[in-house]
């Protein structure tokens, strides 16, 4: 399968923000889906959270990790939060 490069803007929250050390960033990636992108980021930042329990929103809509990515997408990975 052909690997297309895409520019994706990523926002981090809670635990993922701490582990990545940033609020947001724009990455160039060949990942086709949210889960592939998450796996890439796990490599880079050693995220402690499994993809299955992480919520993802693409362009302001909650989506699933299987969703495919398009150039210019804005992705938010949201770890489970329970504090109160």
């Amino acid at each position: 399968m052909e690997r297309i490069e895409r520019q994706i803007k990523i926002l981090y929250f809670a635990k993922l923000r701490e582990e990545s050390g940033r609020d947001e960033e724009t990455v160039t990636t060949t990942a086709n889906s949210a889960s592939e992108l998450y796996a890439e980021l796990c490599q880079r930042y050693s995220f402690s959270l499994d993809a299955s329990v992480t919520q993802v929103a693409i362009n302001e809509k909650f989506s699933t990790m299987k969703s495919s990515l398009s150039d210019g997408d804005k992705i938010v990975f949201i770890p489970p939060v329970a504090g109160g």
Binding site: S48, D50, A51, V53, F62, P79, A82, G83, G84
Partner: peptide, 20 residues
């Protein structure tokens, strides 16, 4: 509906440990 699997409390840190 928001995540594919049900997370356990192990993967979150509450106010007691995370600080608030």
């Amino acid at each position: 509906c928001l995540s594919d699997a049900t997370p356990s409390d192990d993967c979150v840190s509450g106010c007691t440990t995370a600080g608030i």
